[in-house]
């Protein structure tokens, strides 16, 4: 780990003012579960690390009649302990539980989960965000079993590591971002993630001196569920995840949203799968059809075609789980 300054501001505005204008010069520290590892791996070597832990306004959950507002520094443990979250957003709770480690869940934060960097092993081994050696993509020529099957036109082939991203998109969450001089803006969760085109970009729409500070999830009475295909049952990454949400009236779905995880550089909303759900009666055969639809447009790399089968299954099971939920 390279040495760095440690800054511990007491307000968002102060925090923004401590952040540099370009990526990599400074890093934001939330729960540390990703950043400290990234610092050790030297995939980032900032001059300053800005800790958000003294900004008490970033912690906590406010439940209102039509929405739940979550401070970005709220830990994943506190998120899943919240009764309103448990009641309305089982898809989100499942996504947290899937992380599989109480230690990560205790320390990790909601904002940190959304802003964590990819786990691509080429990236983490020093070959840059796109896993290149010279002009050659090591990912394309090498071992891409865990890489993207969607949105993989390049140069990014990694998958988004966020556990909460797919669920927040499916639930229609809004994210609040604070910039310098107290300016704030809002983006829909589905607009928050983006696929970087160059090494100087990151995986979200955040600018280098902006801070994600709050997440608002509307309470819309949607059926929702997350299904994760994971092999090892403790702390590990899933192979593929699917979050599904829809309104259900008389057995018929509407307002459907299907978002896949670990299949693309961003959480991947599947328009085809959502379409298959809307206006349809939910049963096993519809769920299977929806799973099949979710694979539309996939372009597997040399070693990850198996993920198509996992997408089919994850979506199918998420649909059935959501429909079965109380």
């Amino acid at each position: 780990m390279k040495s760095f300054e440690y800054a511990i501001p007491s307000s968002l505005e102060e925090a923004s003012s401590l952040l540099a204008q370009s990526w990599g010069e400074t890093e934001i520290l939330a729960g540390g579960t990703d950043l400290v590892t990234s610092l050790k791996q030297q995939v980032t070597a900032p001059k300053r690390v800005v800790s958000l832990r003294n900004i008490s306004s970033l912690k906590g959950i406010t439940v209102q009649r039509q929405s739940v507002r979550i401070g970005a520094m709220t830990t994943l443990a506190d998120l899943t302990a919240n009764s309103a979250v448990k009641e309305h957003f089982p898809a989100l709770v499942k996504a947290v539980q899937g992380i599989g480690s109480q230690q990560i869940i205790s320390a990790g934060t909601v904002g940190g989960d959304l802003c964590q960097r990819p786990r691509c092993w080429y990236y983490r081994n020093g070959f840059g965000l796109f896993g290149k050696q010279g002009d050659t993509s090591l990912v394309l020529e090498g071992d891409n079993r865990y890489h993207a099957i969607f949105g993989n036109e390049g140069p990014a082939y990694f998958v988004s590591a966020s556990s909460l991203g797919p669920a927040l998109i499916a639930l229609g969450a809004t994210l609040k971002i604070s910039g310098t001089k107290g300016k704030t803006r809002e983006v829909a969760a589905r607009e928050f993630f983006r696929t970087p085109k160059s090494e100087s970009e990151r995986e979200t729409v955040l600018r280098p001196n902006e801070i994600l500070f709050e997440i608002t999830i509307p309470i819309r009475g949607l059926k929702n569920a997350t299904y994760e295909v994971r092999h090892r049952q403790g702390l590990d990454w899933p192979y593929v995840t699917a979050t599904v949400s829809f309104a259900l009236k008389g057995g018929t779905a509407s307002n459907a949203s299907v978002v896949l995880g670990h299949v693309a550089p961003v959480p991947w909303p599947s328009a085809a799968a959502s379409k298959a759900l809307n206006g349809a009666r939910i049963d096993a055969s519809l769920a299977a059809k929806c799973g099949q639809a979710a694979t539309e447009g996939a372009k597997p790399l040399s070693g990850n075609a198996y993920k198509l089968q996992l997408v089919k299954t994850a979506v199918k099971r998420a649909v059935l789980d959501a429909a079965a939920a109380a």
Binding site: S11, E13, E14, S56, S57, T62, R69, G71, S178
Partner: peptide, 12 residues
């Protein structure tokens, strides 16, 4: 008053 965005100025 503790909700993010509301009390921010107080900390400054």
């Amino acid at each position: 008053s503790q909700v993010p965005g509301v009390s921010r100025r107080g900390f400054l």
